[in-house]
Design a protein around this nucleic acid. Structure first.
Ligand code: SF4
Length: 234
DNA sequence: AAGACGGGGAC
DNA sequence: GTCCCAGTCTT
């Protein structure tokens, strides 16, 4: 028998982490173009373009994309070639034919994006992450989001090694579920995205982290071992 | 469960 | 040059 998987923090601790992250997020909210009030269609497109791609790199492609395809109908009628050319700087070109199918499928629904989890998840190019991100960030529906940055963050909180499969593990999902508040879902999820993008990064910036050793087992161990962290600052 | 996809920026 | 990024789809 190996080590048992990490268990989520208790309710009190989870709420404290939520409060700290939400407070941090309010002061460090990043106004990406897809975060300003927008059409749901544009929000869905943004989440797809953001797959495995740093947000800053998506900005110019997103602007061109929604200018060329303001409505799903226009995307559905475009050629795969044209779509592929527009998203080329982002790589993962297999998304081009899926985006065309997405436009066609939404056209059948009057161009409206469904708010049903099953319906979203079955759309071409839309998986667990895009479904949860769209619901929580663009439709006000509480959903937990799990991306590679958030997996890394949970790994740090619990001081557990993670890999590419960790995002599908039950313990990880339960952990994020416990951390995610019942209300103000978009505020918390934006904070979680920004925090994991800017503070709990591949090389963590523990010296500016609002959580620290009280909430982060990785940080606590580094301090206890009196080894310099990966920032090189105590 | 494991592999493929991908350009581009950070280091 | 290496690693990693708001994952998804296919064996
Ligand atoms: S203390 Fe460091 S490792 Fe822990 S959550 Fe903060 S930035 Fe991440």
């Amino acid at each position: 028998m190996g080590n048992s998987p990490p268990t989520p923090p208790d309710d009190i601790t989870s709420k404290q982490i939520q409060t700290i992250l939400a407070g941090w997020g309010k002061q460090h909210f990043r106004p990406f173009p897809w975060r300003t009030p927008l059409k749901e269609w544009h929000g869905l497109i943004a989440e797809i373009l953001l797959q495995r791609t740093r947000a800053a790199n998506v900005i110019p492609v997103y602007q061109i994309f929604i200018q060329r395809f303001p409505l799903p109908q226009q995307l559905g009628m475009a050629s795969v070639e044209e779509i592929e050319n527009i998203i080329r700087p982002l790589g993962l070109h297999w998304r081009a034919p899926l985006l065309k199918k997405l436009g066609q499928k939404l056209s059948e629904n009057d161009g409206c994006v469904p708010h049903d989890e099953q319906a979203l998840n079955s759309l071409p190019g839309v998986g667990a992450y895009v479904t949860a991100a769209f619901l929580s960030l663009h439709a006000g529906v509480r959903s937990i989001i799990i991306d590679s940055n958030i997996v890394r963050f949970v790994g740090r909180l619990s001081d557990c090694l993670v890999d590419g499969e960790t995002r599908r593990k039950k313990w990880l999902i339960a952990y994020v579920e416990a951390l995610t508040p019942l209300n103000d879902i978009n505020v918390f999820n934006y904070a979680l995205l920004d925090f994991t993008m800017e503070v709990c990064t591949t090389i963590p910036k523990c010296d500016i982290c609002p959580l620290g050793e009280r909430y982060c087992a990785y940080r606590k161990r580094n301090i206890a071992e009196k080894t310099p962290n990966e920032c090189g600052i105590i």
